[in-house]
Nucleic acid binder design. Structure first.
Length: 199
DNA sequence: CAGTCGATGTACT
DNA sequence: GTACATCGACTGG
């Protein structure tokens, strides 16, 4: 297994967002391995992106987003959900890629235990808060290095551009015009019910 | 299928 | 107070 090195993450955020599609996110959980193929992401950047948590500067909540690329940025939202980002760029920049959907690969029984026994496979990780629940990601995982010790992303062949759909991001009100959502065109595992109109 | 809406903690005006 | 990078339950067609 080829784990993406820190240098992979310390590059332009939009490039990384696109390249993360098709790669495998994994985490160790209680002696088990949980993994999923990344099928949907969104980019967030400090400069020119009013919807980014980093737009108004560095603080206690978003501090990890300003770290050097290669860590997890996990935040709590809507009073009950966690969302997981991959921090990008150099120390001090304030950018990240939100993981919006995963295709479950290993540890599906454990994911279902976390999500609810009645859930269908397609409801296990087809949304940013769903996948955090399935993988047991919360406050404790904020700032973890993606070096493969506890969490990491394994490399996979590059997805050709015709296999990727680019749209505006989901669930934001500011900077809506930016086409910074990327997902696999033929994947049944992406989050549903929201803008899927290609640009 | 699509649309609406309540839940519920935290940061910000 | 209000907004929030969401989800699931519910409604009507």
């Amino acid at each position: 297994m080829n784990i993406l090195p820190a240098a992979f993450y310390q590059r332009p955020t939009l490039t990384i967002a696109r390249e993360l599609l098709g790669k495998t996110f994994f985490r160790h959980f209680g002696g088990r391995l949980l993994s999923g193929r990344i099928v949907e992401v969104e980019a967030y950047h400090q400069s020119g992106d009013e919807s980014s948590h980093s737009f108004r500067g560095r603080g206690t909540r978003n501090d990890v987003m300003f770290h050097a690329g290669g860590q997890l940025y996990v935040y709590f939202t809507y009073g009950m959900h966690f969302c997981m980002n991959v921090v990008t760029e150099k120390e001090g920049v304030g950018a990240a890629v939100l993981i919006r959907a995963l295709e479950p690969l290993e540890g599906i029984d454990l994911m279902r235990l976390h999500r609810g026994e009645e859930k269908r496979d397609r409801d296990l990780a087809s949304g940013p808060a769903k996948l955090c629940q399935a993988f047991g990601i919360g406050r404790e995982e904020n700032g973890l290095a993606l070096d493969g010790t506890l969490v990491g992303i394994a490399d996979a062949p590059k997805i050709p551009s015709h296999g990727i759909i680019i749209t505006p991001r989901v669930g934001i009100s500011r900077s809506r015009e930016l086409p910074w959502r990327f997902f696999l065109a033929d994947s049944p595992w992406v989050s549903s019910g929201r803008p899927s109109r290609p640009i």
